[in-house]
């Protein structure tokens, strides 16, 4: 089971990297770009857990270590085809 986890800054927390990339894209002619958020992507390979267990365990991992919930928010998907 492969957990694919995205960690990004919460709404309301200034993302200076995202802002800089946003203006760079605008300068390059991508005028339609209105907002850029930079975050982290992690893949965590799990062994011997069911999908419902994995849901619970990955959430715990995010709350405990992978995200700092004071400033960050996370979302993840589980891919059971990956062993």
């Amino acid at each position: 089971m492969l957990a694919k986890i995205h960690v990004t800054l919460k709404n309301g927390v200034l993302d200076p990297q995202g802002k800089a990339v946003n203006s760079a894209l605008n300068d390059l002619g991508f005028k339609e770009v209105r907002n850029v958020q930079i975050g982290k992507y992690m893949e965590v390979l799990l062994d011997g857990v069911s999908e419902s267990e994995a849901q619970k365990r990955v959430k715990e991992m995010c709350d405990k270590l992978l995200a700092n919930t004071v400033i960050e928010t996370y979302r993840f998907t589980l891919d059971s085809s990956k062993k």
Binding site: V13, L14, P16, Q17, A20, N68, V70, I71
Partner: peptide, 10 residues
């Protein structure tokens, strides 16, 4: 309390 993030200047 709080958190320490990357400097605004990066």
């Amino acid at each position: 309390p709080g958190a320490l993030m990357r400097n605004r200047s990066q």
